[in-house]
Design a protein around this nucleic acid. Structure first.
Length: 886
RNA sequence: GGGCGCUUAGCUCAGCUGGUAGAGCACCGCCCUUACAAGGCGGUGGCCGCAGGUUCGAGUCCUGCAGCGCCCA
């Protein structure tokens, strides 16, 4: 892409810049820096390709990383991928199923081979996407949650927690996914309201022939099939309706066995009939009740949620799917006259977040982490401010969960993942847990040992990620330099899954926090506010956007939308308009290069021309704004500030004003403008680089020569660090801009053709005039004036459109411009608006309390505004009456 | 049931420590002015969800209410 091309073409520049960066090892940590900065990329799952959320999160991280790198620090952005146990296994299983193959047909080893093949494919795709986005990750340090080092760290942690008694094996009720046939953690269950039924079933009293209400109770249930496993019917101890039944036996319908009526506070007498069937093995609340009352835990299901063949199950239901069983049981109850009534009922149903299968509470042996000992220091780390959430309110969410945390079920009945390093002995009860693979029992020495078939929850290895990627438990140089990492950038949806666990594991095993700041960003949604998902078909693919508009436009858009605390609705039009911004930048730079002469940027310049002085002071202010915004993770403000400066100040005003000097000056005066023009371009290219790396690098090399590399150059050119004061020059420039705006406004409202040059008279005091005269040619050029006549402050011009300003009055003679009626209408509108403003200001000043208690500066400003407003009003009224008298 | 967040121009959203509201898109004029029509210049458009309170002053702080959304149980 040549700099002479009149429009911006990202496709032509982006791949080339990436190659340059990679070839020069720009993304590797600097060896000789004293300060360090690091971020661990939340490792994408190897389940396919990246979506807009990844692009968003990665862009934020890359902005921070590139910024810190340019500030001279040794920077590590650690790259890696997550094996994502369940999610990845599902993807591969689906692919196999499409070919008519089940994973069990292949066997464990062959299946895992297939998953590794898929990991290579998906991982490669993801890395390619991240490069297209311009992410300056250290590509030489790619890690994977199942590579040797991470596996090593996982075993180390497992063994140590086991030895400390913080990992244990237990038989409990777990969330069971009957489709995936594995336990899942509480966090992986999504509860949603679904339409269902409330079946009211009669449980007859056992062995009593009493009549009336004592011969049965009615229980209401949403899951009638679980009655097969009922252990009791519970009522509230104070419920007068049922008090006399407590301790009596009931006949369990269809099952030919009896169950007791028990009393328990858990029952809400207001809800349903006040009688609750208790199925301890298939409901979390009932489980607790069952334990309190020593009820039998009757499991009625197989791993796939079919009715099992336990002795207490009536034969006709054995082998039925849970919903088939429900149908049969309802029909049979009805046939026996025990179905009292059926109501429509909406209730919460838990489904697996991956499989979407209805989760079954299920009694199994699983591995758990006793979490309280880990949670306490993790809570304290945030309480003490060692870790800071940004925005801060997310710490409430964190505390809320951490203070009510439950033991973590870490075993999964899957094939893809870290196999649990525990071996069972055929000859004794001993479980051998070890770093290394085991071939004899640590208890009795028997050679008949078998490794646990299960794998660990994928978040177990992710929880170690900030330090396992730095070669922990080895005491590596990287660990020394880059741990704790500076910030974790992620979405609020994984605060529990991941953030909390990293903090717990980090504190436990490194005694340090894994990161000092946690920047929580919003979720990306589509233009209608819907969550993007493949099934809805509303996914906006970042690569498609890059193909259409370029990575810089996409990145700028994402940065500009990164406001703290709100979901982001991504509208493609935004990306398009930022592509236009890139085009604007491209063309502004083209103009600069076409007019640079032999000049070079020079940040030490102290210019004399007001236009040049003004732009430098604006640039300096922008530098401070952007720096502050980035420090505070206000990416939208950084982007907005740059947008306003580059487009609003540099392009719209500076370049236009500089043309006068470039076209009319010679020698030193022209050179000064060329240098300032180049210096400020140089300056904002640097500031913008973290957000838009490709276009800025391209233009930087055009500016400084093909060997220059912005990526590792300085972020701040340091202008005005030497305390250069351009305030007076700036205020003179603002006066010129006010006049230009006033003239343009009249021209615009009168529909004067932009190309048409007109005559102007400006009435000002001697002092103001002497200040303005220096910029007369700029004023004439920007306002497209044919001639400009200076008049004394009190002068009036007949038959002219007038625009009164604070210390100047502009007259544009009407002849050939506009008619009197139009000008009268314009003045009328202006008077109305000004009167309103003046009345407001007067009102405030007439309040003595305001004058007494408001800060002096505010009062003074209001007085000034009022004086200016009144002056303007009287000028407008004079102009009005003169026009009316014509 | 508990907690959190949101409600500002037609649309999508900014507005950090209270000083009288901004951007992009859309819309309406005038322009192909030698960097840029992916552009320039000008303009229309807002009782800042509702009701109270604190304050000289509230979009901004406090309380209550309503609607929407999310998290946890």
């Amino acid at each position: 892409m040549s700099i002479l091309d009149t429009s911006y073409n990202p496709q032509a520049m982006e791949p080339e810049k990436n190659e340059q960066w990679l070839n020069s090892d720009a993304f590797k940590p600097k060896e000789d820096a004293t300060e360090h900065y690091s971020i661990t990329l939340p490792p994408p799952n190897v389940t396919g390709s990246l979506h807009m959320g990844h692009a968003f999160s990665g862009t934020i991280q890359d902005i921070l990383i590139r910024w810190q790198r340019m500030k001279g620090k040794s920077v590590l952005w650690q790259l890696g991928l997550d094996h994502a146990g369940i999610a990845t296994q599902m993807v591969v299983e689906r692919q196999l199923n499409a070919q008519g193959v089940h994973r069990r047909d292949l066997g464990r080893e062959a299946f895992i081979e297939k998953v590794w093949d898929w990991k290579a494919e998906s991982g490669g795709m993801i890395l390619g996407q991240m490069q297209r986005l311009g992410f300056s990750l250290d590509w030489s340090r790619e890690r994977f949650t199942m590579d040797e080092n991470s596996s090593n760290a996982v075993r180390k942690v497992f063994v140590r927690l086991f030895e400390e008694g913080l990992i244990y094996r237990g038989k409990r009720l777990v969330n069971w996914d009957p489709v995936l046939e594995t336990a899942v953690s509480d966090l992986e269950v999504v509860h949603e309201e679904e339409a269902g039924h409330f079946w009211h079933i009669q449980y007859p009293a056992a062995g009593v022939n009493a009549t009336g209400s004592d011969n049965h109770v009615i229980v209401a249930t949403t899951r009638p099939e679980t009655l097969l496993g009922d252990g009791a019917v519970a009522v509230h101890p104070d419920d007068e309706r049922y008090k006399h039944l407590i301790g009596k036996e009931l006949m369990l319908p269809l099952c030919n066995r009896t169950i007791p009526v028990i009393a328990d506070d858990y029952v809400d007498p207001e809800f349903g009939t006040g009688c609750v069937k208790i199925t301890p093995a298939h409901d979390f609340n009932d489980y607790e009740v069952g334990k309190r009352h020593n009820l039998p835990m009757r499991n009625i299901f197989t791993n796939t949620a079919h009715i099992n063949n336990e002795y207490f199950i009536p034969e006709q239901y054995i082998g039925l799917d849970r919903y088939e069983a429900r149908e049969h049981i309802i029909a049979d109850l009805e046939a026996e006259g025990l179905l009292y009534k059926v109501e429509e009922h909406a209730h919460k149903v838990g489904r697996g977040d991956r499989s979407h299968a209805v989760i079954e509470p299920y009694l199994t042996d699983q591995w758990y982490v006793a979490i309280q000992d880990l949670a306490d220091p993790a809570i304290k780390a945030v309480e003490d401010g060692d870790i800071r959430f940004v925005p801060q309110h997310w710490e409430k969410t964190y505390f809320e969960w951490m203070r009510n945390i439950q033991d973590w079920c870490i075993s999964r009945q899957l094939w893809w993942g870290h196999r649990i390093p525990a071996w069972y002995c055929a000859n004794c009860d001993h479980i051998t847990v070890s770093m290394n693979n085991v071939d004899c029992c640590g208890g009795c020495g028997s050679k008949s040992v078998r490794q646990d078939d299960d794998v660990l929850d994928t978040w177990f290895s992710s929880g170690l990620w900030p330090f396992s990627t730095l070669d922990w438990p080895t005491n590596s140089a990287e660990m020394e330099k880059f741990y704790s990492t500076n910030v974790l950038v992620t979405g609020f949806d994984i605060i529990f899954f991941w953030v909390a666990r990293m903090i717990m594991m980090g504190k436990k095993f490194t005694d340090k926090v894994p990161f000092k700041d946690v920047y929580i960003h919003a979720l990306i949604r589509d233009a209608q506010g819907q969550k993007m998902s493949k099934s809805k078909g509303n996914v906006v693919d970042p690569l498609e956007m890059i193909d259409l508009y370029g990575a810089d436009a996409l990145r700028f858009t994402l940065a500009h939308m990164a406001t703290p605390g709100r979901d982001v609705k991504l509208d493609i039009k935004r990306i398009e308009s930022n592509r236009n911004f890139m085009n604007k930048i491209w063309n502004a730079a083209r103009f600069v290069f076409m007019n640079r002469g032999d000049a070079k940027p020079d940040a030490s310049i102290v210019p004399t021309n007001d236009v040049n002085r003004w732009v430098l002071s604006e640039f300096h202010a922008t530098t401070l704004d952007v720096e502050k915004a980035l420090q505070e993770y206000r990416f939208n403000e950084a982007a907005g500030s740059l947008y306003n400066f580059i487009w609003g100040s540099y392009c719209d005003w500076y370049v236009e004003a500089a043309k006068v000097s470039l076209y009319k000056d010679e020698g030193a005066a022209k050179l000064e403008t060329q240098i300032v023009m180049l210096t400020v371009l140089d300056g904002w290219l640097r500031l913008l680089h973290p957000i838009c790396p490709f276009i800025t690098e391209t233009l930087f090399q055009e500016l400084h020569g093909k060997d220059a590399r912005l990526v590792t150059d300085d972020w701040n050119i340091g202008y005005a660090d030497a305390n250069v004061d351009h305030d007076e020059a700036s205020s003179r420039m603002h006066r010129v801009m006010d006049l230009v705006n006033a003239i343009r406004s009249i021209r615009g409202e009168m529909n004067v053709s932009p190309g048409k040059k007109i005559e102007a008279h400006i009435a000002v005091s001697e002092v103001v005039r002497s200040e303005l005269e220096g910029q007369q040619r700029v004023l004439m050029s920007l306002a497209k004036l044919e001639s400009l006549t200076w008049l004394p402050a009190d002068a009036e011009v007949e038959k002219a459109a007038v625009a009164p300003l604070a210390d100047a009055k502009v007259f544009l003679p009407l002849a050939g411009l506009v008619n009197v009626d139009e000008e009268l209408a314009r003045i009328e509108k202006n008077i109305t608006k000004t009167t309103k403003d003046v009345d407001g200001l007067k009102g405030r000043l007439s309040n003595p309390k305001f004058v007494d208690s408001a800060p002096k500066a505010i009062v003074a400003k209001v007085r000034d505004d009022l004086a200016a407003g009144e002056r303007k009003l009287s000028e407008l009224e004079i102009a009005q009456s003169k026009l009316q008298s014509l």
